[in-house]
Each structure stands twice: as C-alpha cells, then as structure tokens.
C-alpha cells in the first residue's frame, strides 16, 4: 500500500473497489491471509460470549473475508459495504451473511439494539475523506457514530481495525465516537514495528465501563492503549487550587520567572493553627 499510495487518495471507495480490485480479494492469497488475521484479532477483541451464536454487523464487509471468520465462529452476520463490485464477489463466494449496499456516512439503517457486536476491517479511514461535494467528514462521522450507538445492544462492543493517515484522523474519529456516547479507545498491536503495527479502535456501548484489552507485542510498562479520558487527564495535570502541590507549582513557576519566592519548607501550604475565637 505504501508504494502505490493510499487508496483513499485515488478515488472514492465505490469507484476504487471496482471489479479488478475486488477480484484481488479472491485471488491474492497474501491479501486474503492479512484480512483473515485482522478479522480473527478483531473478533478476539470483540469478546463475544463463548458458545453462543451472536448477531454481528460487519461494516465495510467487502467480499466477506471477515464474515467467513464470523461464520466459522458460529455467528450470524450482516455486512454493509459501499462497493457493489465487492458485494457481488461476496455473493459469488456464497458467504453465509446477508449483504447490504450502503454508505456508513449516511447512517446505519437498522432498528435500535439490533446487534450483539460490530466489526470493521480496514474501512473506517474512508470516513475521513470527502468524496462528494456535499460530504463533510465531521458531519458524516457524527451521523455514523450516532446511528452506530443506536443499533448496538447495550453492553456490546464495536472493534474497528483501521489505517489512519495521521494522528489528526485518529483524534477526530475517537472524539466523534466519544460525543456519540461511546467509551473505550485504541488498542495497538506491535506498536514498535512499522510493518506489524495494527491499530484497533475498540468502542463500548453503554453497560459498565470495561478495561481496554492489551495490545499484542507490547511490554507491560509501555502505554499501548490510549484511554479516552483526555479531558479528565488534563484536569489532573494542574493540581487542585490552593493545595500544597498547586502552591509548589506556582512557586516553581515564579522562580523560573526570576521573581522573589520564599523557599519550600515543611510548612509550605499548611493551614495555620491556633485560631480559637
């Protein structure tokens, strides 16, 4: 992909995934293998209950390679994709899932609480593009995540494997997801390898807050998961006003500015005693 440039820059998805491109997803074994691996990992992160068939939505299902992984795990699935060429390949391959031609940026056309889980392989970055004159990525993301939240069962998860172009895209996507009410964040597998690195956006829909799963190939200490707690973290960074830490920070700041400051002692920030009126 690096050599030929990003597909999002070449053409809109319904044009890019034409018959030639779609054919690759049945003949190119390397591509098939990568898709399968990603789908298996996404399914693992989805953490559906064992020994129970679930109803799963596959966003950007394409030729149904990710769906095959769901079928193997005994789940029933519905796939939505914007490329009719890719969907026709899926029909030819006689996939088990049902297929819908649709644009995720227009919203998901399902009843509330329909799905027990949602997966998406290498599709979400397309949402960051404006392929038509009247497309606004932010607006499309907002509609997408709002309807996604609605169609998911409370307590279920959505796992998106994606290839973001830059950190701004990731930030925009996570921000819009948060706005829609999701919790969760990013899980990064093999963050120190540029080739093996894989990014998953894991979203939790209502229910109790769950800890994010750990990325693969990461050491215990490294922070491979970025929790969606940006706002809270920022607040913690500046100490509570008139607490000892706040006073120490302020004195430090004054010293840096060259202003006259009393030395820090054990009495700094303490309350005065002995006011008995």
């Amino acid at each position: 992909m690096a050599a030929s440039g990003r597909p999002e820059h070449q053409a809109p998805p319904e044009i890019f995934y034409n018959e030639t491109e779609a054919a690759k997803y049945t003949s190119n074994t390397r591509m098939i293998e990568i898709q399968e691996k990603l789908s298996e990992r996404a399914l693992e992160l989805l953490a559906l209950p064992d020994d129970e068939s679930c109803y799963v939505l596959d966003i950007g299902c394409g030729s149904g390679l990710s769906g095959d992984v769901l079928t193997e795990a005994d789940h029933t699935w519905v796939g939505i994709d914007i490329s009719s060429s890719m969907l026709n390949v899926a029909v030819e391959r006689e996939v088990e899932g049902d297929l819908i031609l649709g644009d995720m940026g227009y919203g998901l056309p399902f009843r509330p609480g329909t799905f027990d889980g949602v997966i998406s392989i290498s599709a979400l970055q397309w949402l960051c593009n404006a392929d038509k004159k009247y497309h606004s990525p932010a607006k499309r993301m907002q509609v997408f995540f709002r309807t996604l939240y609605a169609v998911m069962r409370r307590g279920s998860r959505a796992v998106f494997q994606l290839y973001p172009e830059n950190s701004d895209q990731l930030e925009m996507l996570t921000q819009q997801a948060m706005k829609a009410g999701f919790t969760g964040g990013l899980v990064v597998d093999f963050p120190n390898s540029s080739k093996a690195k894989k990014i998953f956006l894991c979203l939790f829909c209502g229910g109790q807050s769950t800890a994010l799963p750990k990325g693969q190939g990461t050491e215990e200490s490294s922070s491979n998961t970025a929790q969606m707690a940006g706002r809270r973290e920022k607040r913690q960074r500046t100490a509570l006003k008139s607490s000892r830490n706040w006073i120490l920070e302020k004195k430090e700041r004054w010293r840096r500015q060259g202003r006259e400051t009393k030395p820090d002692t054990q009495y700094t920030g303490r309350k005065r005693k002995g006011h008995h009126f």
Binding site: I82, S84, I100, G102, K132
Partner: peptide, 11 residues
C-alpha cells in the same frame, strides 16, 4: 438486486 438491497441515499 442479486439479493442485495441498495440503501444508498441521494443528496
């Protein structure tokens, strides 16, 4: 068509 409902919308 071909078993696939087309849910694409117009502007």
């Amino acid at each position: 068509s071909n078993g696939i409902p087309n849910m694409l919308l117009l502007e």
